[in-house]
């Protein structure tokens, strides 16, 4: 497992994960297109409903995710350099940002629902819960993936850089998807 010594162009981590990332981006793109089609049919209703969302909270969660992505990127570098203790701490940091993100999202959902804006309150909120919900499911899987990376880094016999890279690839995808959801659902007027 000295893949980090290779200088030729190569795919970091498990090639299977890249199949997943590309396919998942394609399916999410389809969700985004469906969202835009429905938004195009009733732009006033979507704009009116969107005003109930808090862009400030969304910016905060976006920064949280970007921080997590930065930490896991540093963890990959640390793992490649053989600094496993540091990689472990950085990955744990990413896991923490993910948990915080999910807690903030849960609070946001609870706040919206307590004000009568639920899954059945029109197309905008249906898409809001749908897109953020599917994203949260990916994030939940991401926490499992990070758990696998942590286990890998803790075991002296394992510590394969490829596993850390695979985890980072997945986490970056979760981050990228969130940025598109953030722009489409929270920001776009």
């Amino acid at each position: 497992m000295t893949a980090e010594r290779e200088t030729a162009a190569r795919l970091p981590g498990d090639p299977g994960m890249w199949v997943f990332v590309l396919g998942d981006l394609a399916f999410f793109s389809a969700y985004f297109v469906i969202f835009m089609v429905h938004r195009g049919r009733e732009p006033e209703l979507f704009a009116a409903a969107q005003r109930h969302l808090s862009p400030a909270v969304a910016v905060a969660t976006t920064l949280l995710l970007l921080t997590g992505s930065w930490l896991i990127a540093l963890a990959v570098q640390a793992s490649r350099a053989g600094e496993h203790r540091r990689a472990l701490r950085l990955t744990a940091g990413t896991l923490l940002t993910g948990v915080l993100f999910m807690l903030v999202k849960a609070g946001e959902w609870a706040w919206e629902a307590s004000h009568g804006r639920t899954f059945a309150s029109g197309d905008f909120f249906m898409f809001y819960y749908l897109l953020t919900g599917v994203h949260l499911f990916h994030m939940l899987l991401g926490l499992v993936v990070l758990g696998v990376v942590l286990r890998e880094l803790r075991a002296p016999g394992l510590r394969r850089t490829a596993v850390v890279e695979t985890g980072a690839t997945y986490w970056h995808m979760v981050d990228l998807l969130w940025i598109v959801i953030f722009v489409l659902v929270y920001l776009m007027r």
């Binding site: 498990d14 090639p15 299977g16 994960m17 199949v19 997943f20 396919g23 998942d24 399916f27 899954f119 059945a120 249906m126 749908l130 599917v134 499911f137 899987l141």
Partner: peptide, 25 residues
């Protein structure tokens, strides 16, 4: 089986979850 097939299964799980709202709409 190659690992990517496991991830194809994950897509299937997501589509099954997204079929749950048919009971509402």
């Amino acid at each position: 089986f190659p690992t990517w097939m496991a991830y194809v299964c994950v897509w299937q799980i997501v589509t099954e979850l997204l079929a749950a709202p048919v009971f509402v709409f």
